[in-house]
Amino acid sequence: MTIQHAAHLDLVGRVRGVLLPVASAGAALAGGLVVALVDPNEAGHYPTCPFLALTGAYCPGCGSLRAIHALARGDVATAMARNPFAVVALVGLVVGWVLWTWRLWNGRRRTWVVPAWAIHAFLAAVMAFWVLRNVPGWTWLSPA
């Protein structure tokens, strides 16, 4: 086997290794494009949040579509006003995707898993955000 052939096989292996992250990014970008082009601020384009429709209270995801729409148009301030948790979570997802893709490109095995305390902390943050955005006087957390 020549050095060139071995390098080619290595590149093919790397490309195969990142197919899943690339496909995931493509699906996310396609979804983001739909939200960027179809304005969620106009009634009738997307269904109403079932939790909001049933209870009249905001769920942690309320305003996420409008936040993603604003981000797709470069308006970070509006995105943060609609759902700051979604914006921060999106940043975390992008960082996680980059680390995942880098690890697979380099052929490294996963060496750690998220500790239980981090999962519990994330769930506690979601629950706190959910409660606080429905407290009277905390309208700065509501997506309205």
Rank of each mutant, 00 (worst) to 15 (best):
T55P: 03
A116D: 06
N106A: 13
P47G: 03
A28M: 10
F85K: 13
P21R: 11
D39H: 06
G56C: 02
C49A: 04
W130V: 04
R108M: 09
A121I: 08
L90M: 11
V35G: 03
G137S: 01
V131L: 08
L11M: 15
V98P: 11
W97Q: 03
G63P: 09
A70I: 00
A70T: 01
L65M: 09
C59Y: 00
A43R: 04
R16S: 12
R109S: 09
P50S: 00
L90T: 10
G96F: 07
L19G: 13
V35S: 06
P136Q: 08
R82C: 08
A116Y: 08
L71V: 02
W102P: 12
L37M: 07
L71K: 06
I68Y: 11
H45P: 00
V12Y: 07
V95P: 14
P143N: 14
G63T: 02
P21L: 10
P84A: 10
F85V: 13
V113R: 06
T78M: 02
T2A: 08
V38C: 01
V95H: 10
V91E: 12
V15E: 04
A121M: 12
A7H: 14
V126R: 04
W102Q: 11
G44S: 03
V12C: 03
G31C: 12
G56W: 05
S142Y: 05
R73E: 07
L65V: 02
A67G: 04
V91A: 15
V38L: 03
N41A: 09
V76S: 06
L9R: 12
V95I: 06
A53K: 04
C62V: 00
L33W: 15
V94F: 10
V91P: 14
V87H: 15
R103V: 06
G107C: 07
A89L: 14
P50L: 00
G13Y: 14
P60N: 05
W105N: 10
L52C: 01
V12W: 05
M127K: 00
H5L: 13
V126H: 07
L93T: 05
G92P: 15
A121Q: 11
H69E: 00
G13P: 14
G32E: 05
D39M: 05
R110K: 07
R14L: 00
V114L: 10
A86W: 03
R103T: 09
T48H: 12
H120G: 03
L11E: 12
C49K: 07
R133W: 01
Y46T: 01
